[in-house]
Amino acid sequence: MSNKRKKKWNDYLYFVSILYLILGVFNILFAWLGLLCFSIPLIISLSGGGKLYCNNYCGRGQLLYLLGKKFNLSRNKPMPNFMKSKYFRYGFLSFFMIMFGNMLFNTYLVFSGINSLNEVVTLLWTFKLPWGWVNTSFVPPGVAQFAFGFYSVMLTSTILGLVTMVLYKPRSWCIYCPMGTMTHGISTIKYNNKIKNI
């Protein structure tokens, strides 16, 4: 029994996810494009589209499914219960947002000239990878600093997604993905309000 659903253009968005990471290696400024992955799901869910982005257009989810299922890289074991709990999901979202705020503050310090540009990509909020092979002098240092910070966020979350893909089920990342948690929260609030008003 196989799924014979005809493939559509949006079934190939995993390619965009791969391309994003590759472009960031060649020029870190491409990291700014990652803002689309932040804004589109939020705009969709705030305008009543629910989790349409996660369900149909998330390139990372597709990439993890492709690697886990088609390339057989996943152990396909259930996730531990604590990782599926609301506490963990919202706790991870809070942690992620705090680290994101920290990154924005660093960008602000570079924008205002207090700090100089730090050409590193920070993996898992800890490990600093020197990333200084690209000339970013044609943009203000703050613009480049945001790109380094944002690429760090995207690379870190990709690595976490890959680790849980291997350890558990292919799309385990989708359970604790901060964007997914946010859009699910927004959709739940909207749904509960709708039910109350009926």
Binding site: N3, K51, R89, H184
Partner: peptide
């Protein structure tokens, strides 16, 4: 969490995500 994985794999299109 309405991730939509089940919707994609269902061979009969029997699953729907309700309002995300």
């Amino acid at each position: 969490v309405a991730c939509g994985t089940c919707v994609k794999v269902c061979p009969r299109g029997a699953i729907k995500i309700i309002e995300g």
